[in-house]
Design a protein around this nucleic acid. Structure first.
Length: 880
RNA sequence: GCCCGGUUAGUGUUAGUGGUAAACCGUCGCCUUUACACGGCGAAGUCGAAGGUUCGAUUCCUUCACCGGGUACCA
């Protein structure tokens, strides 16, 4: 068989993926096996694959594939999210490009456009995930606005309303003047910004006196309805009962006394604008000040502002400043840094605004959801996120769930003409309910459904339940089998948006946690640590990465630098490393395929030892890998696999058993080697699904599973633990000799002789002697009592290796290197001696440590003896 | 401001430990050896700073510096 020298993943990957789908390996139906279920964090339906998705889904796929090979009935449910704000904005923009304004369309017409857009562009990302190798059960693909899922949303809305947890009320909300909707607290991102701090002089009514007030938002003076001063502030106490005139519009406003005013900050006097600041709002409530809302929805000023009507708030700010300056009421301007809220979606500056919205009470939902995380019923990986979670949960405020948008789940509330309302599943039920409640005479035309939709997260929080239809049909066999899911893999960014709320929903609607483990991975950043974004243009195109390095290579590259919870500084070189690893595996395979196997050939002792050693090593590594997985240390698990394959299998094992050029290999060794390769492919399959399947398909036995996807994951079994120690000495010898060859310029082809002098009275362990001979091209390996003449000496631990060297090269350099080694050893010896002569050390340190110290001392002494002896000899030679 | 987390080789990524330090990548040097140059062999660190506890601290404690995250207030 002719096998390419370089592994090329391109066709292999797409063919295997198609094959897996055709065989239905990713499909899951409830059966008698233990389930392993997981839901995908649904990407935005209009989204395209970016590096964050690649990382997120690679991790999930590793977990799922491993669970599948461990015999679980695995179900990874894919799907997408309708993303109200983002999708609506895109559809609005697209319509604008076609010359259609949203306002000119009816709700139904707009939604038709939105659905068309979704059908056309939605779910591209899911196709892209297939390129990555994601082993989702595609037959279960869900969308948050599917019928079942939408029904689930209104059902829980009604239930929570009836329980009194959902209420409607006027509150100060975060208004996004770009998206024209209210947002929840979580959708506001606070950033420190350099701002101007304006000092403005207010006239006292009926007097020449003025009072100075500082503000960062001078345009809001037009909504001022009071001035707050501290009750004990002597500077201003005399003003009580008087009124100040709001500059430019001369509205008289009263002084109020409240300890909220900070005497140290600004001028100590605070303007109160109850309609546009949460603290002012509370002050206004407390002291009976009216609120004057001077802004329109889009952030322009309305007629209540009296001035600059129709102008944007930032333009109005400049004009207010200009006009105040002109009339001398602006006394000075300072630079300050303050924190400003921005919309997470549109990046508009959030306008705090009084508004009638729907809210969900959080206290009762938060308590049990906090408890299950703090007591590790749900485990966070890494656990450091527990603290952050607790902090949020303990300070959670009610959730504003209504959005002034059309794309999403419409709020199931119907209003009577007088504003009273009912909450019901449908218009029909609403009518019946309204008649019962408010009078039989009502007709359908008099009821109007709420215009708003629900926050997207109000559907996402049900995701682990609703994908199995567990809200509408709580006892259906699927939800009972798959819920709770096992693991959730996501980014800490959405810990509150999503994870916390899923936990609340799970406990509230199922009485059970939604998942047992939450794996939180970092953000993919570029090499300079910047978040990858379209506008920076610093994100590589995931699909072209896959094209270049293969999905296996990219997966490995992403995972290499991705310890749990830490951000990942992505470099393309990591994918290159992944690709190189593919190639290494490929060539190991190629080597085994090039061997001629002769059935009746006797197995060499070296091969038998090599097999024993690798068997032990493999099991030890499997133990380590299992431990890493059990602690969700996926990058570490991969690193262990990488070293097992590259170092242990390729660099050591294959070199040990490799037959000389064009010579055959015996049957036992051949079979064992293929068996190892088979196991290694299975261990590696969750990380590199394609190349492992390709190689497996060539080497599998008749009785093996037909595909590696469903082959059993090797498990660690008991092994000869002494092998490791014995081999590690042999490895030091081999490395020492290789090193010496390089230093002395002895080509690998030239055979050498080695005479070993042991400096202890133990019989030598010759287990690896044959292998050492083979790996170092040693023609004769013997044990001696006396150091032979004319040899170069290597010291491994306290054993001397004497190697005759044809031409003595560079004695001086050798002396120098021995001298520096001697100095190091002497320093080392000195420190151990110091310890051992310290009575306190001997009496306080555990005896194990003291023994170790004694062993170190005797080893060092032995080494020093050998070095000194050799130095003497070299110096003699130099003199003569 | 408060609360977490971090600082270990090269303005890289991370393990780890009360007994003079590991891995990956990168860099550099040598090697085109018959699986693989997408390869092989090798080199380089006062474990952020200062104190303290200890026979002994990179590890435990305190303070500080810097970085990251969360969160509050900021008129």
């Amino acid at each position: 068989m002719q096998i390419e020298k370089k592994y090329s993943p391109k066709n292999i990957e797409s063919e295997w993926y198609a094959h897996w789908i055709e065989k239905g390996y990713f499909r899951s139906e409830p059966d008698e096996r233990t389930p392993y279920s997981m839901v995908i964090p649904p990407p935005n339906v209009t989204g395209v694959l970016h590096m964050g998705h690649m990382l997120n889904n690679t991790i999930q796929d590793v977990l799922v594939r491993r669970a599948r090979m461990q015999g679980h009935n695995t179900c990874w449910v894919p799907g997408t999210d309708h993303a109200s704000i983002a999708t609506e904005a895109r559809v609005v923009n697209k319509l604008k490009e076609e010359g259609i304004e949203k306002q000119t369309l009816s709700r139904e017409e707009f939604l038709q456009h939105a659905w068309d857009w979704k059908e056309k562009h939605g779910g591209i990302i899911l196709e892209q995930l297939k390129k990555l190798g994601a082993s989702c059960d595609w037959s279960r693909t869900r969308f948050t606005m599917d019928k079942e899922l939408s029904d689930s949303v209104s059902r829980v809305f009604i239930e929570l309303y009836e329980k009194g947890l959902i209420y409607r009320g006027v509150r100060m909300v975060n208004w996004d003047p770009g998206a024209l909707t209210a947002l929840s607290d979580e959708e506001v991102v606070h950033r420190e910004v350099r701002s101007e701090f304006y000092y403005i002089r207010y006239q006292i009514e009926g007097s020449d006196e003025t009072i100075e007030i500082a503000t960062t938002r001078p345009e809001t003076i037009l909504g001022d309805t009071g001035i707050c001063i501290h009750p004990e502030d002597d500077r201003y106490r005399h003003l009580i009962g008087k009124k100040a005139l709001v500059p430019l519009i001369n509205r008289p406003v009263p002084f109020i006394l409240d300890e909220y005013a900070d005497r140290e900050f600004g001028t100590g006097a605070l303007k109160v604008t109850p309609a546009h600041d949460i603290n002012d709002y509370q002050l206004g409530l407390k002291h009976g000040l009216p609120g004057i809302d001077i802004f329109n929805d889009n952030g322009t000023l309305n007629e209540k502002a009296e001035l600059y009507i129709g102008e944007d708030r930032f333009a109005a700010r400049e004009k207010v400043v200009r006009d105040l300056k002109e009339n001398g009421q602006l006394t000075r301007v300072e630079e300050i840094t303050n924190s400003i809220g921005f919309s997470e979606r549109t990046d508009e500056v959030i306008e705090p605004r009084l508004s009638l919205q729907w809210f969900l009470k959080m206290d009762e939902l938060a308590k049990p959801a906090l408890e299950v995380v703090m007591n590790d019923t749900i485990r966070f990986h890494p656990p450091k996120f527990k603290n952050i979670y607790r902090h949020w949960m303990e300070n959670v405020r009610d959730w504003c769930i209504s959005r002034q948008l059309w794309w999403g789940h419409r709020i199931p509330a119907w209003y009577l003409p007088d504003g009273r309302f009912v909450v019901a599943k449908s218009a029909e039920e609403a009518l019946i309910m309204a008649r019962e409640k408010y009078g039989a005479g009502l007709n359908a035309g008099e009821l109007r459904q709420d215009e708003d939709v629900l926050d997207t997260w109000f559907s996402s929080w049900l995701w682990p339940i609703s994908v199995f239809d567990g809200i509408n049909h709580p006892l259906n066999p699927e939800i009972r089998y798959y819920y709770p899911t096992n693991d959730l893999v996501t980014a800490p960014e959405i810990l509150f948006f999503w994870v916390a709320r899923m936990i609340m929903a799970g406990l509230e609607f199922r009485g059970e946690i939604p998942f047992r483990n939450v794996y939180l991975h970092g953000i993919v950043r570029d090499k300079q640590g910047r978040k990858m974004s379209k506008s920076l243009g610093n994100s590589p195109d995931p699909l072209s990465l896959i094209e270049t390095y293969g999905a296996d290579g990219v997966r490995v590259g992403m995972l290499f630098s991705s310890p749990a919870g830490n951000d990942l500084l992505f470099e393309e070189a990591l994918c290159e490393q992944g690709r190189n690893f593919s190639n290494k595996i490929w060539n190991a395979f190629r080597l085994t395929q090039s061997w001629d196997m002769v059935p009746d050939m006797a197995q060499s002792g070296e091969s038998a030892t090599a097999i024993q050693w690798f068997e032990a090593n493999l099991n030890r590594s499997l133990e380590i890998i299992e431990d890493h997985f059990s602690r969700y240390r996926i990058a570490d698990a991969l690193m262990s696999v990488y070293k097992l394959v590259w170092d242990d299998f390729c660099s050591w094992y294959l070199e040990m058993v490799k037959p000389p050029y064009q010579r055959p290999v015996d049957q036992i060794t051949h079979r064992a080697t293929i068996g190892f390769l088979n196991k290694l492919m299975r261990v590696i399959h969750p990380f590199m699904p394609f190349i492992s399947e390709e190689i497996y398909s060539h080497i599998r036995d008749e009785q093996d599973a037909e595909s590696i996807v469903v082959a059993p994951m090797p498990r660690a079994s008991s092994y000869d633990a002494s092998m490791e120690g014995r081999f590690s000495f042999a490895r030091e010898v081999v490395m020492g000799i290789r090193n010496m060859r390089q230093e002395k310029n002895i080509p690998p082809k030239e055979p050498i002789e080695v005479f070993v002098r042991k400096n202890d009275n133990q019989p030598p362990d010759i287990t690896f002697d044959g292998i050492i001979k083979k790996l170092c091209n040693i023609s004769h390996l013997g044990y001696v009592q006396e150091k032979p003449e004319g040899t170069h000496t290597l010291i491994v631990r306290s054993t001397e290796l004497h190697i005759p060297i044809a031409g003595q090269l560079n004695t001086g350099e050798e002396i120098r290197s021995l001298e520096s080694e001697l100095a190091y050893q002497q320093g080392f010896l000195k420190s151990t001696r110091k310890k051992l002569s310290n009575g306190k050390f001997l009496s306080n340190a555990p005896s194990k440590v003291v023994d170790m110290e004694r062993k170190k001392q005797s080893d060092a002494e032995a080494r020093i003896r050998v070095i000194e002896q050799q130095l003497r000899q070299l110096r003699r030679g130099q003199l003569s």
